[in-house]
Structures are given as C-alpha cells and as structure tokens.
Design a protein around this nucleic acid. Structure first.
Lengths: 334, 334
DNA sequence: CTGAAAGCGCTAACAT
DNA sequence: ATGTTAGCGCTTTCAG
C-alpha cells in the first residue's frame, strides 16, 4: 500500500508537505503541489481510511441494522440508504438482527467502538415485543446519533422516519367502504409491531365512523410460524360473504388474491383487496393488487439525510419525519 | 469513548500493562489482570477498532459488492454472507453496483484503501457484457484477495463459487423430455450473462441428445426494459402447443405460470414449467412452481469461507467451488 | 512483573 | 514554502 511516506521519500520532501500538497494548501508552492499530485496519481495513492478516521475521530461510515433482509421492504430501504449514503460520501456497514434483540445488541456493541459515526436502524421484532430498548438508549448516551425508521419506540428519544400508518389504513378502509363493501376483513401478520397496531387502529376508526356499516371490525391475525395460506383458505371457507380485504403487511394481500381467484371469486366485482406495498410481487398477479404505497425509497433517503444532518451538527433537535403514503388503485378495487 | 489511557490513569499503571492484561498476557500478575478487567468491564471499555486495525494492518472486514439488492437471489446471498461473516468475527461493508461497471469500480477503489481485507463480489451486468475486468485484476495485483460468486469471468484469476449452471439446466430439460414433452421453450431475461449462456447450453445439449424430439431449440430472450409479461402473453398467443417451459432466471417462470393459468392451460397436465429458484415467490402461486434450487445460502457461506481461508493463509491456490443444485418437483411438473 | 518507546498512516499546530 | 513534532488508540519489543 502506497503511503504519504513513500511519496515523501520519492520526492525528497517531508510527509507534511505531501499531505498539505494533496489538500491544495496555500502554504505549498504550485510547483510542488503539481509534482506531488503527479506522483500520487502515478502510484495510485489512496489515503488510508483507517488512519484518517482515527486522526479525525470520524469514520464517514454509517451502521445500518435491519431486522430481515429477505423482507422486500427492508431490502428496498437498504437499497435507498446505500444509495443516498454513497452519494453523500458515506459508507455503510450492514448488520442483520434477524428480529432478535440479542443480535441487535451485538451489532450495536460491535460497531459503537469507533467503527461508525451513527446508526440507522429499524427495531427487531423481539425488541419491540418486549419493549426493551435500553441497549439503544445506551448508544445514544454515548453521543452516537441514531435514526429509527419504520419500527420505532416512544421510549427512545432520537430521530425517526415513519409513515402515517394510521392514516394510510384509515384511507384504504374508507375506500372500501365507499365502494359499498359490507364485510371487510383486516389481514395481518404483523399484529404485534407498532406499525401493525397503528394500521389496525386506522381500520377500526374508519369502520366505526361509518353509520351504514353494520358489522364489527374483523381482524385475522396470523402469527409467526402459522401458514398464511392455510389461514386464508380457512377464512374463505368459513365465510363466503367477504367482500373487502385490507392487508396491512406486504404479503398476505397477494396470497389472499391468489386464493380468492382459486375459489373463483370475481375480483374486484365481488371482492376488493388492498395491500400494503410490495411492488415486486405485483408482476406476479393478475389482476394487479391495489396497494398503499409506502414510498420506501423516500424513507431510506430521509433517514440518511436526517442522520447526516445530526452528524454535521446541522440539526440538534430530535424530529420525527412522516413520509406520506398514497393509495394506488389497480385491478383489485372497483 | 473509553481508552486504554483512561484505564491506565485510573489504575495507576501504564498503558502497555493494561493492554497486556486485557489480553491475558503471562507477563502480568493475576491480580493486576483482574483489576484491569474489572474496571474495563465497569466502564464498558471496547477497543477502538480503527486503532487495532491500523496497528495490525488488518480490518476483519469484508467488502461485499453485489449487482442488485432488489434481486432476491442477491439479497439471499447477502443474507448468508452477513451471517457467516459475523459468525467468524468479520464485519461486512456492503456496496451495490447497480449493474454498472463505473459504480463497481468506485466501490473497489473506495474500499481498497485499507478499509477491508478482501472482497466478495458478483460481477455487474455491464462489466460482464463488455468483459472489461481490469479494475478487478488491479485489486488482485495489490494483493487484496477477491472471491467471485455466481457471475464470474475467466479473465480473472481468483477464488470462485458457482453452481453447475450447465448441468442444472441440462437435468431440468431432461426431466421435461422424460415427461414426453414435444415443444419446450427456454425463457430467459439473463441471456447475456455468463450463467445465462451456460444454462442455455445445458438446454441445447439435452434437446440435441434426444432422438425423439423433433423441434429445434426455442429460446425466448427478454431484454432489459422489455415487459416480461407482454413477451410471455405474445408467446402463448403465437403458439398454443407449448407443452414445456424452462425458465432460467428467477422471475419469468412465475410469470409464465400465471399467464398460462389465465389462458386456462392445464398445468401440469398440458404444460410443465420449471423455474430457477426464487423460493420467496413460491407462496404466491398455485400450483407451486417446480424449480432448480440454487442453494443460495450455501453459495454465500462458501464464498465467505473461501475468502477467510485466503486471508488467513490457509489456502493459497485459487479454486473454483461448485455448489450442487437440485431439481425440486412441485406442482408444475408431472 | 511492569513500563518506556516506537510505530501503524495521517493531520495540524507550530517552528523555521 | 517547507519541516518538525505531537498525537489519534493500540500493540509489541525491549529495558528495567
């Protein structure tokens, strides 16, 4: 590896002269600057990032901890985070918590030793269920900024990027009601997560407000480990008057659609379905699923911007940014 | 941040004593070791990774460059890489090339400055099309080990982890032939990639060897930007005697199945379909797609193992490891 | 058993 | 305009 010292020796100048020259310091003669740069280029000199970071006490690196990279929402968020971070001159170190609090804590510990300047993360399911967030607050207390996205906690005082989960589900339900649907099911496999609860509340509120709707809210919560397909099959068998489904996670909607078609239910004539965004599965269905679009790319981008602002002391307050969603009506709604 | 110096001052010993104590050096008295460790634990001391890396000239970090994180194959590979690396005490820094040679090169340059000990990567489409791999060879020449997985190049002399693409497609095609299929189409949207070519060759070979098969091989290559759905619709319209489809990428098979069902073709009675693995879409189809399973997790794991062996000088030769695939017959084959 | 000192590669205040 | 020096946090040789 080529170092400043190498360059200095070759050119018979001091290390500091070389360093200054490469930074276009006023102190150095144009002539020297040119010679230094020429040799640096020739030898493909690249400043050692570790040394620079150690010296400056900043790494230009962001630690990203996501619960599950095989979930398309998080993959997409990671994609956006990587893109925005790179464009702002930051690297990212990625860790996957696998929904486990222990792994989440390990990653936090592992990286909070000078490896990263701050964290962007979405809380593991286990952490959220137990609402044990001390490990994250510990990081904050070490003055390492954290930005939470999607899955957040009220017990953590930090920057947050979320969507209006309540409002999005409320609007989606209202749409189904406006179609005149009389038997609307809410389908969820994220019942215990903060976002799941908020979305369910949006559904409850919309139902409750509608004087003409006679049925009680009806939630089908699918637990981890349960077969989504079987639950949905059973649902259709148990009640053949379902005329509206709102799925608040990113898979059960597609599966419901597929099962409905298999049962020869006419979608959207006799049954409307609205899912929460996962655009990548849309190409696999016909008709195409109507969804609440989460603008995942915006969420990732906003998270990076918020963290970098913190890192560069442009912001000091902890704000919560709400990314707006929109209902995209495709083939599974009237 | 707590440093060795802090501990040393608190305990009235020297920095080197503290360092040695924390490493259980024989030179230090058990008593001192205990005191040092107790304080370190109390203050939650964590060695600064940058300093350690700088000192030791190794980072215990692997640079991972993948073409597209929204492709489920790569997301899964990344998942496996992260998992195995973590379990072996390595961190990963993730970069996404977005199939662009320029971004691939940027990442390589960015990280080859002491940030990582080695790379695991799959070549960007652009790089593979042009077969311009100098930027990768440049890294190798700097003695930074590289392991390539899935998309490789003969012009790069390094460790490689691949599947037997030729053999997998050959076997899959043979299976369709053994069912007595007489009009088998090969569907691909990765026509230009090395793996795509190899798989197509497997198909050609199987067809060629079968004396009873009268038709010529028939490849439908879908280009980037083309609508997969439209191409497949057109395919079914143009020829209503298709009785076998082998899809060698991880999406066109599912789409073909969906379109076939829409055209009321009886799968698998009148049409068999075999895809290349993308287990995550399986839950969305009925019948379930028969696939060549790529064992993506094994690919990721093997890549990490190969790289770490290189890093730890356990291996010196550049080997190519072939992960075996297997044909999983589900609902879309007889 | 413990400590001093050098050095990893870099930056920056402080000479000259 | 250029050089000297100190120091970021750590490890390790060598001296005591």
């Amino acid at each position: 590896m080529v170092t400043l010292k190498h360059l200095a020796e070759q050119l018979n100048v001091s290390v500091s002269t070389v360093s200054k020259a490469l930074h276009d310091s006023e102190e150095i003669s144009p002539d020297t600057i040119e010679r230094v740069k020429a040799l640096a280029k020739f030898l493909n000199y690249k400043p050692n990032r570790l040394a620079v970071s150690l010296k400056n006490s900043k790494t230009n690196t962001i630690g990203v901890i996501i619960p599950n990279i095989l979930n398309h929402f998080f993959a997409k968020a990671l994609f956006a985070i990587e893109k925005e971070a790179t464009s702002q001159g930051y690297q990212i170190i990625t860790c996957v918590s696998n929904e486990l609090q222990s792994k989440e804590n390990d990653s936090l510990q592992l990286l909070s030793n000078g490896s990263v300047d701050g964290f962007i993360m979405s809380i593991a399911e286990e952490t959220q269920l137990a609402n044990k967030v001390d490990h994250i607050n510990l990081i904050l207390r070490q003055d390492i900024p954290v930005v939470l996205f999607d899955r957040v906690s009220n017990d953590i005082d930090c920057g947050k990027v979320i969507i209006d989960d309540f409002g999005a589900a409320y609007e989606a339900t209202k749409h189904l009601l406006s179609e005149g649907r009389k038997n609307i099911i809410l389908l969820t496999n994220i019942d215990e997560l903060s976002v799941g609860k908020l979305r369910a509340n949006g559904y409850f509120k919309a139902i409750e407000q509608d004087k003409n709707y006679n049925k009680k809210p009806n939630v089908i919560a699918i637990n981890r480990g349960d077969s989504i397909e079987e639950r949905i099959e059973a649902m259709f068998k148990a009640d053949n008057n379902i005329d509206g489904i709102i799925s608040i996670d990113n898979t059960s909607g597609v599966i419901a659609l597929q099962k409905a078609l298999k049962h020869n239910i006419n979608v959207p004539k006799d049954l409307s379905i609205i899912g929460f965004s996962d655009e990548n599965v849309l190409q696999f269905t016909d008709p195409k699923l109507s969804t609440v679009s989460q603008h995942t790319l915006d969420i990732g981008k906003a998270s990076v911007e918020m963290l970098i602002n913190k890192l560069q002391n442009k912001t000091t307050a902890n704000t919560t940014q709400t990314i707006k969603t929109n209902l995209i009506l495709r083939g599974t709604t009237k």
